[in-house]
Design a protein around this nucleic acid. Structure first.
Lengths: 212, 212
DNA sequence: CCTTACAGTTAACACTGTTATCTTAGTGAT
DNA sequence: ATCACTAAGATAACAGTGTTAACTGTAAGG
């Protein structure tokens, strides 16, 4: 092995070790625990070393997010087998909730915090490819449903429908993530409510509701 | 006027001047601009002075939030006149969106950031009173709809229904607040999507949909 | 073998929230 | 009117944050 490529490999290993450590910190102690000095200490280096591998904290943090979006998409794999588009939508909301529940820190990070816009070119995810891009996956599912004539005739825009459905379950998820312990609300069980929301929206946009 | 009560009054004035300054800062330059030193400078005092009026930053920040929740509830006043509960729900989602659009910083602050649970006893808002508590207002509207027999028979829990509807419009609002400039998504117009979501959910939960 | 590139460190800067210590002014009581 | 006390406000400091400049040493490439 040539030193040239060994250096390259070591650099990559270092990079992913930093990302791993940062994510662990975020998962176990929350986002505010992710400081450059603590991440560095986690891999027995100094904070300044991180700047040899990442332009700034934002770039490090964006790398975490990128891999979390991959994880989200990969969690969709289990429903890719469902052929009926509407059934797949139902299954999708289910795994989406599961992801949110089991990756609460990541979820807040990806969808509740403001980040500078991510340039798709700088991501490992191919934007718009349903095999890599989670939103694109949802989009193709909706598109299939439209092609099958399953939605009412006034719903022809896949993005519009996708955003409607996503917003419904995303909304209840964020309420639970943020207001879980808030004494002002008596939250109903997340899965149940999410299911009812998805089902109601579907009943609202589908051409032939099951019961009417 | 006795010195005793003048002191009291001055203290209250100081308190609200601090809150005002902090909110201005948050609205104009975002939450991260709200630092104790900058708030203090805004009223020509030192940072330590703020600690004579607020236990810590969290208490200051919670006071802002409290008054923002009052503002939200007050924005509901315009729809209180609508007698039909379902029509009032529709109007409610409309003013809710308007509030979110015109108070983006406050909205993020109230619903997207995690705060330690607020003890209702320490708030100026009477918890559960629909005249003061925005969620309670939504709840009574839904309750009226249930009493009128407008919802399908499987929806009898006001909280459940309220959370469904709220989650729908809250979801699309947060997506727009957080992902507005994200190149990964092509967001459809907020008002339109929100309207479609609310309408679909209603069509899903109402006993007699308009068209079927 | 020598130069160069570069990973990593130390020290520092400008910030953050927060506290201890001090001054100063005004209140309440004698 | 004088005295003690309360409390507002300021100064200085501490521990922490992201980030940069300057330095060290080691390993790669010619």
């Amino acid at each position: 092995m040539e030193p040239r490529e060994r250096r390259e490999r070591e650099r990559l290993e270092m990079r992913s070790k930093i990302i791993e450590t940062a994510r662990d910190l975020m998962v176990n102690e929350g986002y505010e625990a992710v400081t450059m000095r603590r991440v560095a200490k986690g891999i027995s280096y100094t904070a300044t070393t991180l700047y040899n591998h990442f332009k700034d904290k934002e770039e490090l943090v964006r790398s975490i997010m990128d891999s979390d979006f991959q994880t989200l998409r990969r969690s969709f794999d289990t429903v890719a087998a469902v052929t009926d588009p509407i059934e797949r939508l139902r299954a999708l909301t289910d795994v989406y909730i599961t992801f949110a529940i089991s990756h609460t820190s990541a979820y807040k990070f990806m969808f509740l915090m403001q980040h500078p816009p991510r340039d798709p070119a700088e991501s490992a995810i191919e934007h718009g490819n349903p095999d890599e891009d989670a939103y694109a996956f949802l989009l193709t599912t909706v598109t299939a449903g439209i092609a099958d004539g399953r939605f009412r005739e006034d719903f022809t825009d896949p993005d519009f429908l996708a955003q409607m459905i996503w917003a419904g379950v995303h909304g209840i998820v964020t309420i639970h993530l943020i207001k879980a312990t808030d004494p002002w609300l008596e939250l109903r069980p997340l899965r149940e409510t999410a299911h009812a929301i998805a089902e109601s929206i579907l009943r609202g946009v589908l051409r032939k509701p099951a019961d009417c």
